[in-house]
Amino acid sequence: MAWRLTAEDRLEIQELYSRYAWGIDLADADMAMSTFTQDCSFDHLWQGKVQGHEAILANLQSLWNDRQHWWYGRQHLMNHFIMEPREEEGECDVRCFFQIIQFQTDYHTNFVFGIGTRIDHVTNKEGPWRFQSLHVNAWTAADQVPWKGELLMVKKPVHKAAPVAGKK
């Protein structure tokens, strides 16, 4: 590799993730959109893949407004970053874990909404570090966990509970 990420680059990339989380979790469109390159792509379990600022903003606005009970009170937490520079200077792939926690305002409870991994491509080709592409791998089934070891768990059949006497 001809170039290396500096400590400052690494901090700026972590700040990029923070600005992204603050923007999407508080429905701050300007902050959220400032984290994407103009031609960025966004690949997400529920929304699918979208490309460019207009499509990403429409996608976020749908989340914020169409499913507000799903979104209001959320915090996206990203951590355990592995940053791997690409061959071309100013291009980097970032892997991380994520957790989404949420304060459910109707019931005044906190819960974990989801967890998973991300593989993102970031670049500083337009100035500050921004997302060129995001790939969100939300774990909703066992085969989505990127386990590298031998899987020794034995799947046991799911048994339905026996009916309770007097109940239908």
Rank of each mutant, 00 (worst) to 15 (best):
E88A: 04
M1C: 07
M33K: 00
N65E: 15
F131N: 11
L151R: 02
L63Q: 13
A55E: 15
M153E: 06
T123C: 12
D143T: 07
L45P: 07
D143W: 13
Y20D: 01
A27S: 15
D43H: 11
L151D: 14
R95M: 04
W71A: 06
A161T: 06
S41H: 09
K49P: 05
G166Y: 13
E88Y: 02
A7F: 05
L26G: 14
E84K: 05
M1F: 05
K168P: 01
A7Y: 02
A2E: 10
D43N: 14
D106H: 12
M1Y: 09
S62H: 12
T105S: 12
R95T: 05
V164Q: 14
D66L: 12
R86H: 08
P85Q: 00
A32S: 11
F81M: 02
E88P: 04
F81G: 00
F42Y: 08
G48C: 10
Q14E: 08
M153P: 03
F97R: 01
H135N: 13
I24N: 06
E84F: 00
G23Q: 04
V50R: 11
D120S: 08
T117P: 01
I82A: 08
S34T: 12
C92T: 02
P163G: 06
M31K: 10
G23T: 07
A161W: 03
V136H: 06
R19I: 03
M1K: 11
K167H: 04
G114D: 00
